[in-house]
Nucleic acid binder design. Structure first.
Lengths: 203, 203
DNA sequence: CGGTATATGTAACCAGTGATTACTTTCGGA
DNA sequence: TCCGAAAGTAATCACTGGTTACATATACCG
């Protein structure tokens, strides 16, 4: 039987995925504030209780979405600085580092609500460690390249944390009045230069 | 009947303040998640509607609390590095800068929920500009002192933003697995040294 | 004083929500 | 073919955000 097409007789197929997708879209569109499990279920043509079969909790759903957020961020990284590629020289290594930061900042700006979710009370769950390279890995890669070109000193954990903090901080504060009117994109390059100069070899 | 003492016949006196206080405490105790206007009103012995006479919105209440958060942060700054005091020498200026960062980090750690509120969707409202010095002012002061002692170059807006970003970033990421197990307090000093070395005069 | 406007609070109410429960349908394998 | 688990439904509960109509107290002003 199984007639190869389960179709959607009355059940949805894989609701779990659909719910996460729905919520992810809501977050991307800045409609996370008025998200409700019921509304999600309703819009997916399913009863409220059905959703609770897949997620014990509303926050469980949000957690799942936060994880997907990290996936999306990693995908963005991969697009700008493929993980398996290598820098050609010092200038290129700098460029790549800056591009990485720029991607980070842009992501935070374009998907603010998802961003807050990722680093909010639900994000960074110590539970699942993804197999895919994380932000930290990408950063480490860039720093290693830079060190290889002698732009910076061989990176230690402290340095890596420092670089991440600086990039994360400017992402989070990009809408602060302190930055004035000009868009942060125009500042990223200078900020990156400052970061690297902190790690530059003693001269 | 009215017996000359307004007391609390049936109305509370200054409910508005009481509500903000209540919420502030809830935030400090990490109970913000299950805060509700009704519960607040209930605990204050007042009808739900009464609260809505003072705040059009739940988010209006939260906004007020976020503002108070900045007050609290400023108070913490004032406690560690009084705004009118001056650094005695280079070493002192460094110490003060580090203390400032430490205060920031500690605040974020001890009052996480309030913290998130302050920098979340409600915080940093462009509306009211407080009269009291802001984080940015304090930072500027410290940097100016450091420049005066020739520890760093005379600070430009970019530099100030950089320093803030780095400090803010490590505050926000202090619970990240990337930092490992050790408490961030032990790292703050090194991180601050890195920040300053980025701004150090060319030698 | 006494009277009135206004700030403050109450009571009742509505729609919508998170979450649970008991019951039904569908699917896939023995 | 039958049966058990998976997936979904329907009904329900306590509670929430928010509004409205009404009551009460306060302060002001002649």
């Amino acid at each position: 039987m199984v007639q190869t097409k389960p179709r959607d007789a009355h059940h949805h197929g894989n609701l779990k995925e659909a719910l996460v997708d729905y919520t992810l879209n809501a977050a991307t569109d800045g409609e996370l504030a008025d998200l409700s499990v019921r509304k999600a279920a309703r819009d997916l043509g399913v009863s409220p209780g059905a959703a609770y079969r897949h997620f014990p909790d509303k926050s469980a759903l949000l957690r799942s979405v936060a994880e997907r957020g990290f996936d999306a961020l990693a995908a963005a990284f991969e697009h700008t600085v493929p993980f398996d590629s290598v820098a050609m020289d010092a200038a290129d290594a700098r460029k790549r580092f800056t591009a990485l930061a720029m991607t980070y900042v842009t992501f935070a700006n374009a998907r603010t609500e998802l961003w807050r979710l990722m680093f909010g009370p639900f994000g960074m769950a110590p539970g699942t460690v993804s197999d895919r390279p994380s932000t930290y890995d990408w950063l480490g890669k860039c720093l290693t390249e830079l060190a290889h070109s002698d732009v910076i000193v061989p990176p230690k954990p402290d340095h890596q944390f420092f670089a991440w903090s600086a990039i994360h901080g400017m992402s989070d504060l990009q809408d602060s009045p302190a930055l004035g009117e000009k868009p942060i994109a125009s500042s990223v390059e200078r900020q990156c230069a400052l970061i690297l100069s902190a790690l530059a070899p003693h001269r």
